[in-house]
Design a protein around this nucleic acid. Structure first.
Lengths: 246, 246
DNA sequence: GGCGCCAGACTTGCATGCACTTTTGCGACG
DNA sequence: CGTCGCAAAAGTGCATGCAAGTCTGGCGCC
């Protein structure tokens, strides 16, 4: 698999990679929500390691944009702004277009079955919690990227996938992911038939659909608590500004 | 402004970011060459910090693909394979196309002047060492990305830029970068005139040209010493295989 | 009654120490 | 003479300790 000597996190007794994966998944499934604090002590204790490792893991996640790191402050789960999310989806479209272009007509029977199995799982999870749907949908895109064998595509698509998943759980309305599942299926079919253009168009449409569901409205969820409260301060306290953003 | 609270490396007394930048630049300018060892001790001593910080910096660079990290082994400057380089340039084209699309017709007078000043610097450096040319050319693309204001684009274009620069210094022939400078100028002109399609086409062409100069031949520089020796072992030692790759 | 300020707890920033792994040099053996 | 093996040296993996910075609750002042 492409995950062995590839990145900084992998190995035999690799507790670092373990922690990273656990945190990523927890964030994606909304067990950890934007703004939640991630103290090094607590993390380390929870995973049975020292602060050193926890800190290192937070650094990784920070560079992936999943947690926010500020000097001398407790790390928190990232709270993407609407603009960041929009940018993310833009880049995502470009990258995943590359993925389908590379993959069209080159998937083995085995790979197609793996993808379809994943989609079946998605379908099963539809009745369950939304978090599972988001995770499985994200994994579909990552699996696709992994099949290209291009480390850089794998890395970027994974990273953006997680961040988009985070965004979805932030801004998205409780969507029925039924259509998304079907879209996944259609994409695989187009890839299997070797129709690159069609696969590309389907992927574009799919991601635009996801984005439009995710970013229903710019005002859906403002970035900052102070913004949430803005409409309420017409006659309240007034011009007292304690801190810019917290 | 976009560089302050953006990533994990920034701050006031930020020695970590300092080390990262220094190492990135050293690698880009070929002061550190692929395969060079980067022991934590030596790095820390050189920069006046402890191994902890050096290690952390190496982790960052590792996740950026500039250094190779293997468990219990000394970190080394990455030696990209030809295939990785090819993938890198593919992704780069997609991303920088996004950059010019966003920028076309939206550059301020000030920004255009900044870009042209950078290009002038490139022209001046043409007589000097190749490493300076590569660095300045890379910085042009990064500056462009920064002007989009999109954190994700900035990060990815920067990272890929550095890695492509590394590749260039690995595989590239001693090219006259004259045309590249002119191409940069043309791109800025197209952006300033607001002609997105033309800017896009120019950027595509430019990057393809760079890639073709960089990846002159698949056999130019194989990844592994063992591969270099492969043609010589017809009648030499024989089937003795000490290690897969070193 | 509200506001500001200060001290204690809490958390991060970072260096150092120790155990474990890899590497290397050297001597013994085939 | 070439090869293997072992032991010292070098380097990483990681926990812990201490200094410095940040948050919180309570007290005094206006």
């Amino acid at each position: 698999m492409a995950a062995d000597s590839d990145e900084s996190e992998s190995g035999s007794t690799d507790r670092l990679g373990l922690i990273c994966r656990a945190l990523r998944r927890a964030i994606l499934e909304r067990a950890l929500r934007p703004g939640d604090k991630l103290p090094e002590d607590a993390l380390g204790e929870r995973f049975g390691v020292s602060r050193t490792i926890a800190r290192y893991a937070l650094g990784q996640l920070g560079s992936e944009g999943l947690v926010e790191l500020r000097r001398n402050r407790i790390a928190v789960v990232a709270t993407p702004s609407w603009e960041e999310a929009r940018d993310l989806f833009d880049v995502r479209v470009s990258l995943e277009r590359l993925v389908v272009k590379q993959l069209a007509g080159r998937l083995t029977r085995e790979q197609i079955e793996e993808l379809e199995a994943g989609i079946a799982e998605e379908r099963e999870a539809q009745g369950g919690p939304e978090s599972a749907s988001i995770r499985l949908a994200t994994e579909f895109h990552i699996t696709l990227a992994e099949m290209t064998g291009s480390p850089i595509l794998i890395r970027y698509v994974s990273e953006i996938g997680y961040r988009c998943g985070l965004t979805l759980s932030l801004f998205g309305r409780p969507h029925s992911s039924e259509c998304a599942v079907n879209e996944h299926l259609e994409i695989v079919a187009a890839l299997a038939s070797g129709d690159a253009d069609r696969a590309c168009a389907l992927m574009d449409h799919h991601l635009e659909a996801v984005a439009s569901r995710a970013l229903v409205s710019e005002a859906a969820k403002p970035r900052d608590i102070m913004d949430v409260l803005a409409p309420y301060v017409t006659d309240a306290a007034g011009p007292k500004k304690r801190r810019a953003g917290g």
